[in-house]
Design a protein around this nucleic acid. Structure first.
Length: 361
DNA sequence: AAGCCGGGGGA
DNA sequence: TCCCCAGGCTT
């Protein structure tokens, strides 16, 4: 079935008219600069525009060109990303840009296949860059687009399923205008975030309500359908703010998994009791020739929610004893442990909620 | 197809 | 609290 027959394509012009008046002023918009658009697209994945804007400005100051980013270390790049979340985006953006600099002579490829082969660039981002930077007629199907089309065409498939996404991608490809595809894609997003919002859509202000099937049936608020499967697992965690003189003992998380390669306070997951958690921490510092005395009073309880994990963190102070010099203690520490003064904390990348605990130091 | 990967803002 | 956001990678 050709679902485009369900609606007259006139609505795409109404949407572009709305966009001409209501489009947001964004630093990467209407620049035609593929690097700026690339950075903005990666930063805005699963992230609200208002949240990533200051990061974008800072990023462009630190890495003004693709060459600057390609030359930067992973550490620098992740540091500039600190606080935005999904840190693989930063690592992959750097790798993708390096590939463009090295393999494509610094020119962003202008076809979907080459674009999607770049690290961190999937179907959405490829379509966004091709349409916005090069004005190609390519679909860029994100959460906004899925929602807008599910309502306009009254699609009851789960939009998180492959079937639902494919169906809507097909519809977008059919409806994408030939003259202003890049602006049309951006119009869908601005429209989705201003009018066709997830909860309580503003149908009374909507320029497309006359053609929207969900609106006609009174189903706009209940669409789209999203079925999530992953459930959040709760993990309790004992955190030690362990001090030796002016120095705090810190641990670098492994280079795989959640918050990889970021610094944290020594922690014990799921301790059966305070005693058991404390003994784990004691055993840990014992490897470095230290002893530690932990105060049994929890100085802060902090709950932190990830998309798939819930950490309940309980922080305790502890005093480390070591008979020897700073140098001899440092010599005992493996590469993933270090001693740091409070004043040096800002130079390091903190593992999410551990960064919040630094205010206790 | 499902799990993994952060943080924040709005309701 | 819960929801969900300008998604992509890995298994």
């Amino acid at each position: 079935m050709d679902e485009t027959e369900l609606l007259p394509l006139e609505w795409t012009n109404h949407l572009l008219d709305w966009y001409d008046v209501n489009q947001r002023e964004l630093p990467w918009r209407n620049t035609g600069d593929p690097y700026k658009i690339w950075v903005s697209e990666i930063m805005s994945q699963q992230t609200r525009i208002e949240a990533m804007k200051p990061y974008f400005d800072n990023w462009m100051m630190r890495f003004p060109t693709m060459q600057d980013l390609a030359d930067a270390s992973e550490e620098e790049v992740v540091h500039a990303w600190q606080g935005l979340g999904y840190y693989s985006r930063a690592r992959n953006l750097r790798l993708g840009v390096q590939e463009v600099v090295e393999q494509y002579g610094g020119h962003v490829p202008r076809n979907r296949k080459a674009m999607e082969s770049l690290k961190g660039v999937g179907a959405y981002t490829a379509g966004a860059i091709l349409s916005m930077a090069f004005n190609q007629r390519e679909a860029a199907v994100d959460g906004n687009v899925l929602r807008v089309y599910a309502r306009l065409y009254h699609i009851e498939d789960d939009i998180l399923s492959t079937k639902g996404r494919k169906r809507i991608t097909y519809l977008v490809e059919q409806t994408l205008p030939y003259d202003r595809p890049g602006e049309f894609n951006q119009a869908l997003m601005d429209f989705g975030s201003a009018i066709c919002i997830p909860q309580n859509p503003r149908c009374h202000e909507c320029p497309l309500s006359a053609v929207c099937i969900a609106y006609a049936r009174g189903d706009a608020p209940s669409l789209p359908i999203r079925i999530k499967k992953t459930k959040v697992i709760t993990i309790s965690m004992m955190v030690g703010l362990l001090k030796w003189g002016d120095y705090y003992l810190l641990h670098k998380r492994p280079n795989t998994g959640l918050l990889r390669s970021m610094w944290e306070f020594p922690s014990v997951e799921e301790p059966a009791s305070f005693i058991e958690g404390a003994s784990h921490l004691e055993n840990q510092v014992k490897k470095f020739g230290c002893t530690v005395v932990l105060e049994n009073e929890c100085i802060q309880e902090l709950t932190h929610l990830f998309s798939h994990r819930k950490w309940i963190m309980r922080a305790y102070r502890g005093i480390i004893t070591f008979e020897g010099t700073l140098e001899s203690l440092q010599a005992q520490l493996p590469a993933d442990w270090q001693l740091l003064k409070r004043s040096e904390f800002a130079d390091y990348v903190w593992a999410g909620p551990h960064g919040k605990l630094t205010t206790l130091c």
